[in-house]
Amino acid sequence: AAALPGAARAEADALEPNTWEEITQYNNYYEFGTRKEDPARYADSLITEDWEVVIDGMVDNPGTYKFDDILAKMTVEERIYRFRCVEAWSMVIPWNGFELADLLEMAGVQDGATHVAFQTANRPDQMPGLAYPVLDWPYVEGLRLDEAMHPLTIMATGIYGKPIPNQNGAPMRLVVPWKYGFKSIKSIVRISLVDKEPPTSWNKANGREYGFYSNVNPNVDHPRWSQATERVIGSGLFAKRKPTLMFNGYEEEVASLYEGMDLSKSY
């Protein structure tokens, strides 16, 4: 695994993580309902034993991988990251996970692949929210290959050193800390290497409000609310809002990925 850039590590030391309760009782995971408390209440029904992940598309070693086998091959480390939801609230989460780049290396990315597509489990018998057409199920997300290979991009498998709870995306979820939370797709069952920008769920649902990139950017508002500031979860009833940081505070590490792009158009 490539070393975490120095600035991010120094910053991470200064971040005060939210409590286990805050992180695991306040979730957006619409497969279990649209209220923040729904996932904690209903996600127990998701069966994560013998989880398998299909890795396919433009890879040397396509196939169905057992989650346990993947985990055995990867180096799991702690990453304390800011988490900024597109709804303008934020937390700090001590993830445990491995770099997505390591997993992609294991699969062997072929020349010509430009993007990575991800898919969440689609199990109506275990996910009551799938009964409602809030989104076009299954949930899908995507990254450009250079974003996916970036050392900050991880597959999280734990929080606070414990296995990741179902409501947070067990057994394995993406975490891209400089993007709005919905990009960090949960309970992944499929990873496909492709040669064009893949469709993404919220972009399909409302392209004007949710772009493919969805980088945290205080200067580009959501059409229905400002992204300039955020409410810090756990800071109490009378806490002041906090100014949102460019790329959620990871500008030094990731700004070069977007050089020459107009971020107000490629939002």
Binding site: Q25, Y26, R231, G234, G236, L237
Partner: peptide, 13 residues
């Protein structure tokens, strides 16, 4: 309830 933690994780919302 908001002051005393009875409204969950995000009392303002």
């Amino acid at each position: 309830a908001g002051l005393t933690g009875g409204l969950g994780i995000d009392p303002v919302k």
